[in-house]
Simulated scan of single mutants.
Amino acid sequence: LETDHVPSLPAGTIEIGWRLAPEYWRKGYVTEAAEAWLAYGFETLGVNEIVSFAVADNHRSTAVMKRLGMSADPASDFDHPDIPDSHPHLKRHVLYRLLRGDWQVRKRAAR
């Protein structure tokens, strides 16, 4: 997914994200699927960086990002332009990044 709606990112930036019904939370599905998508992005597509973002208070999603080896980039946190001001608790988003080289190091270390 291209992140054209994130003001702090250049056009063409690749994002990984997820939405899951609550009955499927805490089963490892998101992490497993995200790892597969990271492999596809870095190995098949050859991208150099993949980002992810979530509502600032969405601690479950940020925990997944950390498990994936992504790093927070507080300078790129943003107020999502598609979230109306009537929902201030959903407006602020945190951004995490993962470089292909860092992903490769983690992948080799996991073997």
Rank of each mutant, 00 (worst) to 15 (best):
Y29W: 10
E43G: 07
L45Y: 05
M70F: 06
G28T: 08
V51F: 03
K66Y: 03
Y29V: 12
R67Q: 14
W25M: 02
A56I: 10
R60Q: 14
P22L: 12
S61M: 00
A34Y: 05
R19T: 15
P22Y: 13
E23L: 07
V30F: 05
W25H: 12
A54S: 14
F42E: 02
A33M: 08
R26P: 01
A34W: 02
W25E: 01
E43T: 15
V55M: 07
D73M: 10
G69T: 06
T62F: 04
G46L: 09
A33R: 07
V30D: 03
V47T: 10
M65I: 00
Y24S: 11
R60E: 12
L68Y: 00
V30Q: 04
E49I: 14
L68G: 00
E35Q: 13
V64R: 01
R19V: 15
S52G: 14
A75C: 09
S52R: 02
N58R: 04
G46P: 08
T31Q: 03
W25A: 01
S52M: 06
G28V: 05
A72M: 11
W37G: 09
R26L: 03
N48R: 15
A34M: 04
S52V: 03
R67L: 07
A36D: 03
L38P: 09
A39T: 11
R19L: 15
V47N: 02
M70N: 02
Y40D: 03
A36E: 04
A34R: 04
A56M: 10
T62R: 08
A72I: 12
I50E: 00
K66Q: 07
A34K: 04
M65G: 01
Y24R: 14
L68C: 00
G41T: 06
A63R: 03
T44E: 12
N58D: 09
E49N: 10
V64A: 00
T62P: 05
T62A: 04
V51E: 01
F53A: 09
V30T: 14
T44H: 10
G41C: 14
E43H: 11
A72P: 14
E23I: 11
F42L: 02
A33T: 09
A39I: 06
M70C: 08
A75T: 15
R60S: 13
E35M: 10
A54G: 07
R60T: 11
R60V: 11
T62L: 07
I50M: 09
N48E: 15
F42Y: 05
P74A: 03
K66F: 03
N58P: 10
S71D: 13
A54L: 05
V47Y: 01
L20Y: 01
V51H: 02
E23M: 10
E49D: 09
Y24E: 13
E49S: 07
E43R: 11
